[in-house]
Design a protein around this nucleic acid. Structure first.
Length: 294
DNA sequence: CCTACAACCTGACTGC
DNA sequence: TGCAGTCAGGTTGTAG
């Protein structure tokens, strides 16, 4: 899935075209994604205006004119895109026999300035999901999420509070959405490399005995922020099948370590080579020379 | 509290 | 060309 930069890229791509648009019709091509679609989803959406497109962690939130909010998670392979073809006679979405297999939900939109369009949610692996709330802040998915890494509450002190006493490897701890919300396998690897921290060390070793953060945690908080900002600036990463609303992102060309096993470490003057190990079943990429224990 | 692993799915790629 | 095996950006639940 899309991690935070990819979801933010999707949000920015959707917002200008979807905010203020009326959902004229909703077509569901199957009953479920990872979970069943909410009861009466199509009827609940039809006739509503989308008033805002927001993001929290890796969740996309669409506020509706009746006060409800649609929450969507893209899983590993979910995407929102507009139909490429001209919209003439809805609801004839595709030529017979040419319908893409994974276009699971299609909205017909009418926008006061941009006119009509079809917005499609596709998801080959169907790890994504959609839900609808009267008050989205009550959604169990949003409960317990850590701070937004680009918000004011995220800093070294927040990391120190979360990591104090924890023996889990720092890589696993950063993937924990309760610690900081929105990081995934790619950006954890990149942030740890920027901060020159070995992914295998226990998270608690970055906290001083008095509970205050060691210098390395300042570097880590900065590394997280910097890598996310840099990725958002170029539209996120496009690997395998991720696409933003408007097309490809380019951050994959800037990976320092992710999926670069055997490549020279890009840290200036570092003679190291990128290694790959497996931690809790997932690949970790790092440089064993310039990434160290504190 | 911790780790490992399986499960949910399809598609892309590798090696034989 | 085909086929089996492996791996993939996430989350959740289980067992140990």
């Amino acid at each position: 899935m899309p991690e935070l930069p990819e979801v933010e890229t999707v949000r920015r791509g959707l917002a200008p075209w979807v905010e203020d648009a009326t959902i004229l019709s909703v077509r569901l091509n199957r009953p479920d994604l990872r979970f069943p679609f909410p009861e009466g989803l199509a009827a609940a959406l039809e006739g509503r205006v989308v008033t805002a497109v927001r993001r929290r962690a890796k969740y996309l939130l669409m506020d509706l004119s009746d006060g409800r909010t649609l929450l969507s998670h893209l899983g590993m392979t979910g995407s929102w895109r507009f139909a490429e073809h001209p919209i003439d006679k809805p609801p004839r979405y595709y030529e017979p026999g040419t319908e893409p297999r994974h276009d699971h939900m299609i909205w017909e939109l009418s926008h006061p300035r941009h006119g009509r369009s079809h917005l499609i949610y596709a998801d080959p692996r169907r790890f994504g999901f959609i839900d609808l709330y009267d008050d989205v802040s009550t959604s169990p998915y949003l409960q317990g999420l850590g701070p937004e890494p680009l918000g004011n509450e995220f800093n070294a002190a927040a990391l120190a509070r979360a990591f104090r006493g924890r023996k889990a490897p720092i890589k696993a701890a950063l993937l924990d959405q309760r610690v900081v919300a929105g990081l995934g396998n790619i950006y954890v690897a990149e942030a740890l490399h920027r901060a020159h921290i070995l992914p295998t060390i226990a998270a608690g070793t970055l906290v001083r005995a008095d509970g205050r953060p060691k210098k390395a945690l300042e570097d880590l908080a900065n590394g997280v922020r910097e890598v996310l900002i840099a990725a958002i600036e170029v539209g996120g990463s496009t690997i395998r099948d991720f696409r933003s609303v408007e097309g490809a992102g380019y951050f994959q060309h800037n990976f320092a370590v992710y999926d670069r096993e055997g490549d020279p470490c890009p840290t200036p003057l570092c003679p190291g080579v990128v290694h790959r190990i497996v931690q809790s079943g997932r690949s970790t990429f790092f440089c064993p020379v310039c990434q160290k224990a504190p």
